[in-house]
Amino acid sequence: MKKISLIVGLLVAMPAAWAQGEDTYADFKAMMDRSFKTTGIASKHRIYQLDFQKACSSEKLPSKKEMARIEAEQMKTIRYPADGKYLGDWKEGEKIAVNGRGLTWTDKTPYNNGGGCYNCHQMSHHEISYGTIGPSLLEYGKLRGNGEEVVKYTWGKIYNAKAFNACSHMPRNGDAEILTEKQIKDLMAFLLDPASPVNKK
């Protein structure tokens, strides 16, 4: 008898707890909706999430299955260069890697954004002001060579990192139109060209 009443109690309590969770989420969405405004180029719609952003917005990562589903979906967004040329000018690439500007409400235009690479990655031998949120990319090309597989993987990773790790911290530089195709080519050269300071001391 005691057991039954315990089960009944649980059955009554559980939907109530779920409902409370859903209520809090609805209230949360309403709070976000009324808390932001458009300023400059940063329009208010930026707070409305894409599905994968929502899936990656809690303390815990989504299930492996969900991660794999997101990765497969993101993989489809990657556009490889139409002319088949992957490597641009590493000197231009270095400038893009250093530049962390772009897309905030104090930036004037959505063009000529920086890659902000040094915010999170070590890259060249000489730049000591680098962040540590991402892995070190020092001697990236020297360690990996520039075979077709490496080149295509690197392009894909810069273009849309979520294709390889659903909840990666790294922005989708190509897919989200943060960088242009030409800028990505220049970054590719910065990483892979043997003459680039990433690879040459």
């Binding site: 809090t24 989420y25 209230d27 949360f28 709070m31 976000m32 930026r46 707070i47 409305y48 999430q49 952003q53 929502k54 990656c56 917005s57 809690s58 303390e59 897309l103 979520k162 911290h169 922005p171 989708r172 989200a176 139109e177 943060i178």
Partner: peptide, 18 residues
């Protein structure tokens, strides 16, 4: 507190940052 924690992990915008 609960909503602040949700906001802390909330990823959005062109760079997907939270």
């Amino acid at each position: 507190y609960e909503m602040g924690k949700m906001a802390f992990y909330f990823r959005a915008g062109p760079m997907d940052f939270s």
